Simulated scan of single mutants.
Amino acid sequence: MGDFFYKIEQDLKAGKKKKACDRLRNLINQFPDDLSLRNKLGQIYYAAGFIDEAGKYWILSQPENKEMEKAVELYRKTLSNSGNAILKDIVFRGNKAQLNEYATKVLAELEKDSLKKTKHIPDFKPKNREKGKYSEAEDPTSFVNKIFKVIFIVFLILLPILGFFKLLELIKALFSY
């Protein structure tokens, strides 16, 4: 977990805000129940002057200050305060039961508005990774293991074929005298 946040902080210090935002969006996609990731991304967007985009990531968080309130309000106005449009934009793929009371309430209000206005509630395939269990995607040695498995399977398949040709050579050698 610390490694991801360390990379994000290093990106920010180096002025690579886009890279930091990409990392955070990937984490949000993998761990949608962790609202602290959305808060951090909202802070980056706010500091960069993208107030409505900050509101997008802060909408599920209890406002801590006037800036958060204004950003969420601007975000809602940007999408005409449409529950359907907001739900499609924030793409929450987490477990609603894991969220705090405030976030649950906001999602319920958005869903109610969406159902009322469009007779539809956007639903997204959930991601089920646990909050705080941040790790790299895959162990690099697993690629090497896969290569060895493929080579072994190819060897097992070729062994009888090569043996058959060797047997034909032996038979040919016996009858050539």
Rank of each mutant, 00 (worst) to 15 (best):
M1I: 01
D11S: 05
K16M: 01
K16S: 03
K16R: 04
K17R: 14
K17M: 12
K17G: 07
K18M: 00
A20K: 02
C21T: 08
R23S: 13
R23Q: 12
N26I: 04
L27T: 02
L27Q: 12
Q30K: 11
D33K: 09
L37K: 12
N39C: 01
N39T: 01
L41V: 07
G49D: 02
I51L: 10
A54C: 06
Y57I: 00
I59Y: 02
L60K: 02
S61H: 07
E64Y: 00
M68L: 05
E69G: 05
K70Y: 01
K70E: 06
L74C: 03
K77Q: 10
K77R: 14
K77V: 04
K77M: 07
L79Y: 08
N84L: 10
N84C: 11
I86G: 07
I86N: 09
K88Q: 15
D89C: 10
I90M: 05
I90D: 06
V91K: 15
F92G: 03
R93D: 02
N95H: 04
Q98F: 07
T104D: 07
T104Q: 15
L107V: 10
K112F: 13
L115C: 10
L115E: 15
K117S: 11
K117Q: 12
P122D: 13
K125W: 07
K125L: 15
P126W: 04
K127L: 09
R129A: 11
Y134W: 11
S135V: 09
A137H: 08
E138R: 14
E138F: 13
T141Q: 09
S142D: 06
F143V: 15
K146Q: 04
I147W: 11
I147M: 14
V150M: 12
V150F: 13
F152N: 12
F152Q: 12
F155A: 09
I161T: 13
G163I: 09
G163M: 10
K166T: 00
L168A: 03
L168Q: 04
A173N: 14
L174N: 11
Y177A: 08
